[in-house]
């Protein structure tokens, strides 16, 4: 079965990002395919390259990266939500005249159309929310 996962929860402040990660691992372990993980609203913060995580805690972005590398996952961060929150890649840095960028490797900025396409392509779409 083909799954897509929508993450609206940010790491650290909400549990939803970690729940989504565990769910993604369980989906893959059961032999299903993940078409896309789409990060929306404050969920875009899952894609930052600049987290500094205490040694006895696990970095959520790093865990997404590792899972994506292992299973060739499509990690898409909503571009409109991301640039507003200061999460940009090299290309957007060029467009907006910033000297720095911070989107982690393995994540990609793209539009909400990718969310709609995921809904059409997947057998199941599962959303993990924060609040507000």
């Amino acid at each position: 079965m083909i799954f897509s996962i929508i993450v609206q929860a940010p790491p650290v402040q909400a549990q939803g990002a970690e729940t989504a990660l565990r769910f993604a691992r369980a989906v893959l372990a059961a032999g299903h395919r993940i078409h896309r993980v789409f990060f929306y609203r404050d969920g875009v913060h899952n894609g930052t390259a600049l987290t500094c995580t205490p040694q006895d805690e696990n970095s959520i972005p790093a865990q997404w990266q590792a899972l994506a590398a292992e299973h060739d996952l499509d990690l898409v961060v909503c571009i409109a939500a991301a640039v507003r929150r200061g999460l940009i890649d090299e290309s957007e840095a060029g467009r907006y005249g910033h000297r720095h960028w911070n989107l982690a490797d393995g994540f990609e900025l793209s539009g909400l159309g990718q969310l709609v396409e995921a809904c059409l392509t997947s057998d199941r779409v599962v959303t993990f929310g924060g609040r507000s």
Partner: peptide
């Protein structure tokens, strides 16, 4: 239930609706 059973429930139901 564990995470694997969560996935199994997603499969055995037509769709998933999240309340948050």
């Amino acid at each position: 239930i564990d995470d694997q059973a969560f996935v199994a429930l997603c499969v055995s139901h037509d769709k998933v609706v999240s309340w948050f």
